[in-house]
């Protein structure tokens, strides 16, 4: 069979497209991709096999206790304040029991509990749906369990926001920089069009410091290695009844809540 130039170009072009596409996939599957978390930690850095947090709601007494943990996060991470819910970006925030644990509210709960604000942040899940759906690996899970976001790789498709059952992710609907009250030069600001969320303060852990909210919480928020039976989190969990947000979804959330009795307010 003889082919003319036109036919040849058609076949050559089609082959090239298939070959390039195929190579990209094979490369990715075969090669052991370098992960950001493979660098050896700084001496003095806090490390764990699986970070987790226990929030003891009994220890949040006044409005000020909440403000402290939220404000410190907002200020050190350059979280903008747009003053409207449409553009809102939040890493740590509060809501009532009914909206923190939808479907778990009881009809005749103690009033104090019903009105009490609960602290919410990213659950750094064992099986994070956000990581599963991300088409660019811009959101990924580190070996210590922290779910991270690469702001330079994110294409802003917001698939992760649809996938997260905890509403933990925020999108930069517009340039956040003019809305940062006082910029912290130690931490990067973000650009419009990318998704962000709580990082368990990786930048502080690397320096041997506890997450900022934990430090500001006066012991109400406990942070540690869930795989270590002697860690503070394990001690808190073995001596108290705790609950997690939507554990039935199989995501394996790593934020535990100690609710306590009616005397907590």
């Amino acid at each position: 069979m003889s082919i003319d130039r036109r036919e040849f170009l058609k076949i050559a072009g089609a082959s090239a497209i298939f070959a390039l596409g195929g190579m990209a996939i094979v490369n990715d599957i075969v090669k052991d991709n370098l992960e950001a978390s493979q660098f050896s930690p700084e001496p003095g850095a806090l490390t764990a096999r699986k970070w987790a947090m226990v929030i003891d709601m009994q220890k949040f007494k006044t409005e000020d206790d909440y403000k402290k943990v939220i404000n410190v996060c907002n200020s050190i991470h350059n979280i903008p304040d747009f003053g409207n819910p449409k553009d809102e970006i939040k890493w740590i925030w509060t809501d009532t029991f009914e909206h923190t644990f939808p479907g778990q509210q009881q009809e005749f709960m103690p009033e104090s509990l019903e009105r009490m604000p609960f602290v919410m942040l990213c659950n750094h899940c064992d099986n994070p749906p956000c990581v599963r759906v991300c088409p660019t690996k811009a959101t990924f899970k580190r070996k210590d369990g922290i779910v991270m976001q690469d702001m330079h790789r994110c294409i802003g498709c917001r698939f992760c926001m649809a996938a997260c059952p905890y509403g933990s992710r925020s999108f930069n609907w517009r340039d956040p920089r003019p809305f940062i009250k006082k910029e912290n030069p130690e931490y990067p600001t973000r650009t419009k069009g990318v998704v962000e969320k709580c990082t368990f303060c990786v930048e502080r852990l690397a320096k041997g410091l506890m997450p900022a909210c934990v430090e500001a919480s006066n012991g109400a928020m406990i942070f540690g290695d869930l795989t270590d039976p002697n860690s503070e989190v394990r001690k808190a969990l073995s001596s108290n009844y705790s609950i997690r947000r939507k554990p039935e979804l199989g995501t394996g959330p790593n934020i535990y809540y100690i609710i306590g009795g009616a005397d907590n307010a």
């Binding site: 990209a24 996939i25 990715d28 599957i29 599963r132 759906v133 991300c134 088409p135 660019t136 690996k137 811009a138 790789r153 994110c154 294409i155 802003g156 498709c157 917001r158 698939f159 999108f171 930069n172 650009t191 419009k192 069009g193 990318v194 998704v195």
Partner: peptide, 24 residues
């Protein structure tokens, strides 16, 4: 899809970093 991207100039990241576990 393109007009829905927050960072449309990075859209080729989907091909540069192919992620078979993502339905997208």
């Amino acid at each position: 899809i393109f007009v829905d991207m927050g960072q449309p100039t990075r859209i080729m990241n989907v091909i540069l970093h192919p992620t078979p576990n993502s339905i997208m």
